[in-house]
Amino acid sequence: MSTTDLESDSPAPQTSSMRGSGRRVGDSVFSYLSVGSGLLIFLTLAAVAIFLTSESMPAVIASQEFSGTSEFSLIEVTLPLVYGTVLASAIALVIAIPISIGIALFISHFAPRRLASGLGYMIDLLAAVPSVVYGLWGGIWLVPKLEPVYVFLNTYFGWIPLFAGEPTAPMRNLASASVVLAVMVLPIITAVSREVFLQTPRLQEEAALALGATRWETIRTVVLPFGRGGVVAASMLGLGRALGETMAVLMILAPGATFSLHILEVGRHNSIAANIASKQAEASGVDMSLLIFTGLVLFVLTFIINALARWIVARSGPKS
């Protein structure tokens, strides 16, 4: 009975043709907006490259290397900054990587299952803190606390070039900046490593445990080899972040422009990003152009690091 109702009551659209405009207005608009947004991403990055390059040209043209006459050298200005940037990031990674692997293992394999997501959230909170607040905390709270550690290292391990030299308070040195950078990249490395560790084939782990391996032996023989590529990639991502970080370095480091290895000494190093941030307010003309040039160098540096990280991820990612 219901079916007859359906027929008699309904207007019969069936008799109309199925022909249509083919493209509806809404469909066209949506398609154009979507494709347009995709193209806009292309344009934006092209614009970044073009503006950074074109605005840095005046400095290149005015430099000794290009004109041969000017007294300022592009390389002499840029290289110490690149050195400082890379050194600070490298030390940050040396501190952060083992701790991150530890945390990632703790959350993925040691902590009770019920606690794991909450602990992961704590690490995410660490990532949510703005860098300027880290800078403030590092500059005011952490630097004085690190002083005895530096004195200790300098006194007893001064024969190692890194800890040599004459540290003077306040310890606004590269080591302090690196410690804060380490805190900032920790959540990134942890998050990626944790994901990789969790993807370890369950069967392999259970096989190891069934053979009588301890938890640590299982991790050493199964989890870590499986996750090696992921940890390397995570570290590269962390490196990319550390290279580009401005505030932690700007607010902590007393700048210098040398190739010194003495990370406990004050006023020896500076990073590209911090240098731009501290000089941009007074810079104009060729000076501004020079800052933009160093920014371009930083962009290229981080691009290479990130591309390398992605390449490693793609190569070592779990095959599915």
Partner: peptide, 20 residues
């Protein structure tokens, strides 16, 4: 052909086909 109309005719809108 549905009801004598070829649904692969270039003038036919697939959305209308699916309504029927």
């Amino acid at each position: 052909e549905i009801n004598g109309e070829n649904i692969y005719d270039s003038r036919v809108d697939p959305v209308n086909v699916r309504r029927r």
